[in-house]
Structure formats: C-alpha cells, structure tokens
C-alpha cells in the first residue's frame, strides 16, 4: 500500500490538473447538497418558527421526535427511500431511483430535522417581549414571525450551517438511492468510497481535500454573512 505522503503529493497534482470528470463530480456534489439543503430550509425554517411561537398539545412530543431525527442514520433513510422509490415499491411509477433527484430527497430528509430543531431552539431563545411588543403595536402574525426570525437569525444560520455539514458529508443514503453511477449520480463522497475501494488512494485523497476546502469556503461565507448581519442589528 502506498504511503500517506505519496497519496498526498499525487493528490495535490491531481487537484492542479482538474479534469472534466472530476469537475462534474464536484459540481454534482454541490448541486445535490445545496438543493437538498434549500428544500430542508424552506420546509424546516417555518416549522421551527411555528414550534417556537405557538403553544399547542403534543408540541413536546413533536420536538422530541425532531431532535431524535437530527441523528437519523443515513443508511436507514437510504434504505426506506430505496424501498419507496423501487419499481416494485409504492412510488416506483415516478422512476426516481438512481437519479440525482432521489439523492436530493434523501439529503432534504436528513437536513430537515436539523434546520427545524435548531430554528426552534433559536426562536425560543428570543426575548418573548419582542413578540408581545410587536403584536401590541398591531403587527400581523406574519410580521410577528418575521420579527422573531430576525432576532433569532444567528441561531438559525448556525442550524443551516450544521445541516449543510451533514448533507455535504453524507454518503450512506445517497449511495443507496443514487447508485454511484459514473457521470450521473457519482458525487464526491461516493467517489471517495469507490476510489478507496479500488485502491486509488491519490484520487480519494484529492477528492477529500477538495471536499473539505469547499466546506471551509462555504462556512467562511456564511460566517461573514452572519457578522455583517450583526452590525446591522436594529
């Protein structure tokens, strides 16, 4: 087996000579992760706010379930989704198995509880006076919600960052529903698993470095957004 040093030096040369296939894999990775995250935010953020503001029965149970689902094992999600999307499963007519859309669905399912639960935590951390004050000042329900989201935005962004970390590192679920098909559903993490399997450690290490670099970049951007937001607090 090649030494770690060899793998790294060859990996670096691979990174400097990015070929079309590698670029395609990186692009698909980002596409699937970002859309999956977006869907999770669109669904999870309102739910988190709702849970934070409203009082109703069974709320405690719902929150416990959400918190539990934050740790959903990806392979289990992949397995259930596989059984659902399989041609002999209930949603087989959609022909979604082994497509990037199926991978997006898996990512959303994994990211959704994180966004919802962390949004909820952020919202309950907001001073209740904010909500009360805006309603006494005649704000509509939507306006009250927006005011609360504004106050809780740092916590919410942290939740989104955590969810992004989960989807971008995910391999188990997307391997099952995507099938790791070259040129179609092969993303960075599944490519790393495959190349490790094949003994191409240089390529696996190269992909790993790129994956971490991209995560670093995106997190830095989010951090800057958060900081700028802090300055503009009204």
């Amino acid at each position: 087996m090649s030494s770690i040093y060899d793998s790294f030096s060859q990996a670096l040369s691979l990174i400097f000579h990015l070929d079309a296939e590698l670029l395609g894999i990186i692009f698909l990775s980002m596409k699937v992760s970002c859309i999956g995250l977006l869907v999770a935010v669109v669904l999870g953020l309102p739910l988190g706010v709702f849970l934070g503001i409203k009082k109703f029965r069974l709320k405690g149970i719902l929150i416990t379930v959400l918190n539990t689902f934050m740790g959903l094992p990806p392979v289990v999600v992949g397995l259930f989704l596989y059984l659902l999307l399989s041609r002999s499963g209930p949603l087989g007519f959609l022909s979604l198995l082994y497509t990037s859309t199926a991978m997006v669905v898996a990512q959303s399912i994994l990211a959704f509880p994180i966004v919802a639960a962390l949004t909820h935590s952020a919202v309950i951390g907001v001073d209740p006076v904010i909500g009360q004050a805006s309603s006494t000042l005649g704000a509509t329900r939507l306006q009250v919600s927006l005011a609360v989201i504004r106050e809780a935005r740092f916590g919410i962004v942290s939740g989104i960052v955590a969810a992004f970390g989960r989807v971008v590192a995910e391999v188990g679920a997307i391997l099952i529903v995507g099938g790791n098909i070259a040129g179609y559903t092969r993303v960075m993490t599944t490519a790393i698993a495959l190349e490790t399997d094949k003994g191409n450690f240089e390529l696996a290490v190269a992909l790993g470095i790129i994956l971490i670099a991209i995560s670093l970049l995106i997190n830095s951007v989010l951090h800057i957004v958060q900081k700028k937001g802090m300055v503009g607090v009204s």
């Binding site: 399989s86 041609r87 002999s88 087989g92 082994y98 099938g179 790791n180 098909i181 070259a182 179609y184």
Partner: peptide, 19 residues
C-alpha cells in the same frame, strides 16, 4: 447504459425488484 455496481447477489435482486 448507467451501471450500478454491486455484488452479483445484490445485482440480481435489483433486477428482481425491477430497478
């Protein structure tokens, strides 16, 4: 042709499910 590579047993099962 999109290839999903598994073990033979799993590959046959995949066909049996119509996938």
């Amino acid at each position: 042709v999109k290839v999903v590579a598994l073990g033979t047993g799993a590959a046959i099962e995949m066909g049996k499910r119509g996938d």
